[in-house]
Simulated assay, not measured.
Amino acid sequence: MGFRLKIEKFDEHLERLRDKYKVYAPVKLKGKGTFADTDTIRYKEIESIKEIEFNTKSTFSPKEIILPITQTLFYFTEDECKEPKEGEKKILIFLRSCDIHAMKRLDEVYLRNGNEDYYYKTLREKVKFVLMGCSDSFENCFCASMGYNKTEEYDMYTKIKNDEVFVECKSEELMNYFYKDIEGTIVVEPEYVSSNDIKVTIPENLDQRVFKSKMWDEYSSRCIACGRCNFVCGTCSCFTMQDVFSKDNKNVGERRRIWASCHVDGFSDMAGGHGFRKDKKDRMRFKVMHKVYDFKKRAGYHMCVGCGRCDDICPEYISFSSCVNKLSKVMEAVE
């Protein structure tokens, strides 16, 4: 159902929604960027739709809401283990089409990859999505090439125009909050970009023969193994474990799950000191091929959704999209 409301009226309903939902959206954080005089856009809990940054791409993806950077799995003592108490509120996330597709990839990894991950599932079951449209393509985006510039898998869509909020609501539960102030229905269609400045082509014949290509050599010196590309990516899902012990009693503490990165030193190290990918070019090759080859072989669709955040954040200006486009020439040479 489509309708429109004044911003102030929409915020009144949002306030009522917040009784049962934690509402997250991308907001501008002043002075929180890389340097003291720069800003960043990141997901935070909001109270008004006016706080949402609709016209700029967020630096981080919304995955940190349902896959926290640091998550306590359980507390332990000498005698027992105890799970942390979960909040009763549900979760409402404002996000873009590419990010909704990215959530599908996380679902594949954590829910359909053998055993379901209990901690991820507990949060994921509470989530509803509010789609944010894209009237123009952002810098470094290539979602259209990947086919993820559009989606139908959302519960509500919102767009601000002048002093009004245009809404399309698919969820009956969410619709119940708005019924009394709807004077009439209108047609509201989500905005999507049909093309991006950056085009990416993944070769149909891509296979493991590219592993030995010289194209990876440049990343040995260019990549500094900071892992920033992994942390802003909406589909990277790797983590490590950490036990934090009490200073007063070494037998009491908590076990945490913490984001990890395949680019960072030590990620692939095993007992005895053996490391599978000590050279940074091997780590770059692993990430790229996982996003556009390995994952598709297992799940049937590409892991990368074309958000371009990895290109935005890299301090060495390494372009993931450019790297993917090089694969076509490598496969031509191989053939």
Rank of each mutant, 00 (worst) to 15 (best):
R4G: 03
K6L: 11
E8N: 11
D11F: 06
E12D: 12
K20M: 02
V23M: 02
L29Y: 07
K30P: 13
K32W: 14
A36P: 09
T38K: 06
D39Q: 10
K44D: 08
I46E: 02
I46W: 08
I49Y: 04
K50D: 10
E51L: 06
P62H: 14
I69A: 13
T70S: 11
Y75M: 09
K82V: 15
K85S: 15
I93E: 07
R96M: 11
S97Y: 06
I100A: 05
M103G: 08
M103P: 00
K104W: 10
K104F: 01
R105C: 04
Y110Q: 00
L111P: 03
N113P: 09
D117R: 03
Y118Q: 14
K121P: 00
K126P: 00
V130D: 00
L131P: 00
C134S: 08
F138G: 15
F138N: 11
N140K: 14
N140E: 10
G147N: 08
E153T: 08
N162R: 13
V167Q: 00
V167T: 05
V167E: 01
C169N: 09
S171D: 07
E172N: 08
L174T: 03
Y179R: 15
K180P: 10
I182N: 08
I182T: 06
I186E: 12
E189K: 15
E189D: 13
S195A: 09
N205R: 04
N205E: 09
K214W: 11
M215Q: 02
W216V: 01
D217K: 10
C226Y: 01
N230C: 15
G234Y: 00
S237T: 03
M241S: 09
Q242H: 14
F245Q: 12
K247G: 15
K250R: 11
K250E: 12
V252F: 14
R255E: 01
I258T: 13
S261H: 03
S268G: 10
S268I: 06
D269V: 14
G272V: 05
G272H: 04
G273F: 03
G275V: 11
F276C: 13
F276S: 12
M284L: 12
R285P: 03
R285Y: 04
F286M: 14
V288A: 03
V288H: 01
Y293G: 08
Y293T: 04
D294L: 13
Y301R: 10
Y301W: 03
M303I: 07
C307F: 04
G308E: 01
C310R: 07
C310F: 02
D311G: 07
Y317T: 14
Y317H: 14
S322M: 13
C323T: 15
N325L: 10
S328R: 12
S328N: 12
M331S: 06
A333D: 15
A333E: 14
E335R: 04
E335L: 06
